[in-house]
Design a protein around this nucleic acid. Structure first.
Lengths: 233, 233
DNA sequence: CCTCAACTGACATATTGTGTCAGTTGAGGT
DNA sequence: ACCTCAACTGACACAATATGTCAGTTGAGG
C-alpha cells in the first residue's frame, strides 16, 4: 500500500468519531506504530484536525473531509443554485454555512479561464420570515444528537399547548418550515410549524431510536395513509 | 518541493483550460520532463482527467477539482438542503447533478457513526412544471459559452414575438424561472419567463461581454431603478 | 508512583522517486 | 514519403524518502 493511500485510510478509520489507538491503526494497515505516529504528524501538518491524547487515543474533531472531488460544470451549477436558495430560504446559521460552502468551492473553481464569474443564477421571492427561523439551529442540533425538546406551541386554530417532542426531521414547504416529531403528549407523530413555536428548549433528556417512533416509521405511516386515500377515491 | 505538493501544482497549472507542454511544466516545477510524465501518469491513474496529445500538449478536461475539503456539519446540512430543493425545483439535468453531488459527498460523509442516516430534511410543495424546464439546459449552456439564442416568446398578455437575445442569467422565483438577457429586438434588457418560450435555439453566433450589455450593467440598472422608486414614495 | 499510550530521536535498511539517455509513437505539416 | 514536434516508454544508477527497531520521554488518570 502506498503512503498516500495509507494517509487517506487513516482519515477514513478515524472519521467514525470514536477513539482509536495508534496500535490498532498500525495493525489495520500492517505498518509499525512508529509509522502511524509519523503519518498522523503529516496529516495534522496538512490541516486534518486529529486530536491525540496521551494514554487515550486518537479522535477526529468535527469536520468531515471530502477527498479531492471532481464536480462537472453542471454539478457546480446545481451546487451554486442550491446554496443561493438556502441563502434566501433558511435561518442565519444555514445561510452562513451556504456562504462558506460557496467560498470553499468557489476559490478553487474560479481560477479557470472558462468559468464564468457569475454562475448565472438569481434567487428571489422567498419571503424572509426571520422570526420563523428562530428555533431552527436548536432543532437541527436536537435531531442530530437525539435530544428531546419542550415546546410551547400555538396551533393554527389558536390553541396553545406545551409538549415534549422527539424531533425527527425538518421539512421545507417553500415558505414555511415544519418539524416532524414523535409527540410524547399525544403519543403519536405530529408535524409542527417552526414559526408557530413560541418557545423551544432541550429538556436535557436524550432519546434513542425506538421501534415505531423513528423517522422511517413516520414516513412509512404517511405512505400507507396516501395509499388508503387513493383507494377511497 | 514534495512530490504530493508537486502533483497538486500540476493540476493547478493545467486547470486554466489551456494547452501546456510537459517541458514548460517541468521548467516551472524545476524537475525533469521525465518526472512530469511520471507525475501525470500518477494523476491520470487517480482519476484526474488530463488529456495528452502527441505533438500538442496537455489539457484538463471538463471537471473542476476540489481539493480535500473540510465541511462542518452545518455546512453539510446546508449542502444537503440545497440539493434536496434543487431536486424538486429544477430541470432534469440539474436534478441529476444534484443527486450526483449528494452521492459524491455522501459516500464519504455517511461512514461516520455520529452522522445521521437521513440528513433531516424534507422538501415539498414546489409544483413541478416539467414543461417549463424544457429549455433550461440549453439556456445554461448559452450563458456559459456566450451564445446568442433565437426565441419564440409569448408574453403574458398573449402577444407572440421572435427575438434574438444574449442570455445573461437565470432567476428562480420559487415557482417559475426567468432568463434575463439583452434583447436585440428591443435593444435593452428584458427578462423572459422560460416556460413562456415556445421555441429556443442557438443562432450559431457567439457574443462577447460588451460595455452596457453585461449582467453587471443589468444589475446596476435595476438597483438604480429601485433607488428612484424609493425617492418617489 | 504506576500504567497507559501518545510522542520523540537515532540509525540502519528498504522502498520510492528522479535524472539521464536512448529510444518509439501518432498527428500535422511540407 | 518524409520531417518535426512533443507525448510517451524502458532501463539503469543514484538520490531522497519512508520504514522498522530500539530506547527513551511526557502527560493524564487511577
Amino acid at each position: 500500500m502506498q503512503r498516500s493511500e495509507r494517509l487517506a485510510e487513516i482519515v477514513e478509520i478515524v472519521r467514525d468519531g470514536r477513539l482509536h489507538l495508534a496500535r490498532d491503526i498500525a495493525d489495520a494497515l500492517e505498518v509499525s506504530v512508529r509509522t502511524v505516529y509519523r503519518d498522523i504528524d503529516t496529516l495534522v501538518a496538512s490541516g486534518v484536525p486529529i486530536d491525540g491524547e496521551r494514554g487515550v487515543g486518537y479522535l477526529l474533531r468535527e469536520p468531515v473531509f471530502l477527498p479531492p472531488m471532481a464536480l462537472s460544470f453542471t454539478e457546480l451549477e446545481a451546487l451554486s443554485l442550491g446554496m443561493a436558495i438556502v441563502q434566501e430560504a433558511a435561518d442565519e446559521e444555514l445561510q452562513a454555512a451556504a456562504v462558506a460552502v460557496m467560498n470553499k468551492v468557489g476559490e478553487h473553481a474560479s481560477n479557470r479561464r472558462q468559468a464564468p464569474k457569475s454562475w448565472g443564477f438569481g434567487v428571489y421571492a422567498f419571503e424572509r420570515a426571520q422570526e420563523g427561523f428562530r428555533h431552527m439551529p436548536l432543532i437541527r442540533r436536537a435531531i442530530r444528537e437525539g435530544l428531546k425538546l419542550r415546546i410551547d406551541y400555538r396551533s393554527l386554530d389558536d390553541r396553545n399547548s406545551t409538549r415534549v417532542i422527539r424531533p425527527l426531521q425538518t421539512e421545507f414547504w417553500g415558505r414555511v418550515w415544519t418539524c416532524s416529531a414523535w409527540c410524547e403528549l399525544r403519543n403519536s407523530f405530529r408535524a409542527f410549524r417552526i414559526d408557530q413555536m413560541q418557545h423551544c428548549e432541550p429538556t436535557g433528556e436524550a432519546f434513542q431510536p425506538e421501534t415505531g417512533k423513528t423517522i422511517e416509521d413516520y414516513l412509512k405511516q404517511i405512505a400507507d395513509q396516501m395509499d388508503r386515500d387513493q383507494d377511497r377515491s
